[in-house]
Write a protein that binds this DNA or RNA. Structure first.
Lengths: 360, 360
DNA sequence: ATGAAAGCGCTAACAA
DNA sequence: TTGTTAGCGCTTTCAT
């Protein structure tokens, strides 16, 4: 592998540092406030506030004068002050394990598509699958006096549960179903996924069915899929000990690694269910290289039904999961709560689907 | 394609709606404040505030009593109030086109890795490549009185530039190099990328070199790569009109579509530079299906050097771009500014590298 | 329809 | 080391 490289850096402008600092310090002084606008027009601050937030309460004539002044002076309402005064910050923290799985990105997009238009600001936090980070994030984010909070997963530390439970705001746990939700819950059963996949692969006639996944010690959802998977294999009288784990983060390369480890240890394996599509695709690429026919020699199956699953050769059977839909649903439930509307169900099972393609 | 499905939803608990509402309304009343803690201990509010924010200024004995009370009462500092009082909200908005490109996700991670530990909260906004959305986001996010702001790209509406320029806080434009940065700037030259790739492919002996990309009308960086690409081909006396565009968002499937469109229109094309690795991979998968030898019949090249490029068969030549590094660098420059430290350069060219693999 | 007063929860600046 | 005073920019409440 050759690497050509082009790099250069240079200084653009030679502002003296003290000018930069001055600009920085002048921030406060430079900001236009509500009362600046009010003074400018000789009206009360409340009138300006109303013109902006409840236009119909201000006479059209005054209103347009105010809006003109707002525009002219470049006034931007201070949401921090507004939030403090009103007790509503219009912010909603979202706590996710990572953004490297496109699953969480899709979820976020679904969420944004509803919340952004309603004027809510999303405060993002990622835990990297660590419960202690999660706990700390919850605590930090609650400090913003959010209107609600959305958190991935249903497995939290006791302190996290206490914090969330006593925050007095709607909480939505997502991506999984909880036995005892803190408040609201949108997701599907990962145990059922594992069971359904085992049943499906067994139904296709495979006899030595393996599970391969990463970070299985800290990814509770993956663990639950394994449990459902093994339970079902056991019930069907099939071997259920073909489990390959790794502590490394998920990637295509890791799919290859997991596959090779599996084949070395258990050459008889004839089907593998991966913890996600990337790993399955990485394994498939390795099969292509080795001339291992898929699915004739070995069947491969992914999870989440990301785009790559439908594009490889052969295309990968996978489990479709409604991540964007979960995002929208979670946002909608939160909004209903915030508006004081009644909620039909506090827990929603969004289900999943096995999408059969050529790899099994 | 068969689709098995499992879905169910049910009502978990039958709380009367009015209780839910009460809980919601009681939020304010239920919240423990700084003065609650102070009263509880019979000390001044400032002492509690100091014990939390500047521990070394409070006597160890009192400090531990305070921390115990904080823990016991479940006090969580209100960052909204603190932000208002201090004029520092410790928040930094990040405005990105989308999270669907893993490039922006990597950038975000790089950013978080520096800012999260320093106590800054990231406020996320995505524009979907729309300048009007960007303008609106800038305005909204500035309302949080952020300490700085990070924005992808260097092409903004005039109003956006004005808003950012007069905000009086450090601004970092990323992912590209600007002729006239608003303030700070970390990125690389997309024109240079296009030029370097054209030169590289021509150097490999290809004669009919094409560019394929999506949303080229609204993705200014892609446009700049095309410009550099065409300029160089022209200079080398090669045809430079093999350009395939689409208005659809980037995906593997679109790579296939772009490739097929290209081959239909210009059968003589012998090398294609795609706007990103996903598209190149999608095209490669289609070549596999059609038995089109890569690179013998047609050479394929990606952009960004995402993981998929190194895993396909053949592996894809690509252009490595330092997105995580840009994230870190942007965060560091911002922090230096916020600390009042001097900055070496206001603009940093992070460069790029052509990573040669088997597909060219 | 408009304005005045009070205060959201916290911290800077000063005093003791 | 600790406490007091004042006020951040806005909205609520109540008056006009």
């Amino acid at each position: 592998m050759i690497a050509l490289s082009k790099t250069s850096s240079w200084e653009r402008v030679a502002f003296p540092g003290d000018i930069e600092q001055m600009m920085n310090l002048s921030r406060k002084a430079g900001r236009v406030t509500l009362s600046d606008v009010a003074k400018h027009l000789g009206v009360g601050t409340m009138t300006v506030s109303r013109a902006i937030n409840k236009p119909q309460m201000v006479s059209p004539e005054l209103r347009s004068r105010i809006m003109a002044a707002v525009e002219q002076l470049g006034y931007i309402p201070n949401r921090v002050a507004g939030g403090l005064a009103s007790g509503k910050a219009l912010s909603i923290p979202v706590i996710l394990p990572t953004l490297y799985h496109s699953v969480y990105v899709s979820f976020l997009e679904g969420l944004c598509s509803v919340l952004q238009v309603e004027g809510y600001q999303i405060l993002l936090g990622t835990t990297e699958y660590r419960t202690d980070t999660e706990e700390q994030l919850v605590s930090t984010l609650l400090g913003w006096w959010p209107d609600g909070l959305i958190i991935a997963g249903v497995d939290h530390s006791q302190r996290t549960r206490t914090l969330l439970g006593s925050a007095g705001i709607p909480i939505v746990e997502i991506m999984d179903l909880s036995q005892e939700p803190i408040d609201l819950n949108v997701g599907f059963s990962h145990h059922q996924v594992g069971a359904a996949v085992a049943e499906y692969l067994a139904g296709q006639g495979y006899k030595h069915i393996a599970y391969a996944g990463t970070q299985t010690e800290i990814d509770f959802r993956s663990m639950r899929r394994i449990a459902g998977f093994q339970d079902t294999l056991r019930r069907l009288g099939l071997p259920h000990h073909y489990i390959q784990r790794s502590h490394k983060p998920s990637s295509l390369a890791l799919g290859k690694e997991l596959l090779l480890g599996l084949l070395e240890q258990y050459p008889q394996v004839d089907a593998v269910f991966f913890a996600n599509d990337d790993q399955a695709a990485g394994a498939l690429f390795e099969c292509q290289r080795r001339g291992l026919a898929v699915p004739e020699k070995i069947a491969l199956m992914g999870f989440n039904d990301q785009e790559i699953a439908s594009q490889t050769n052969p295309a990968l059977t996978s489990v479709w999961t409604p991540r964007r839909e979960m995002g929208r649903k979670a946002a909608e439930m939160l909004l209903r709560r915030l508006r004081g509307q009644k909620l039909g169900k506090k827990q929603v099972d969004t289900g999943f689907k096995i999408v059969e393609r050529a790899s099994t």
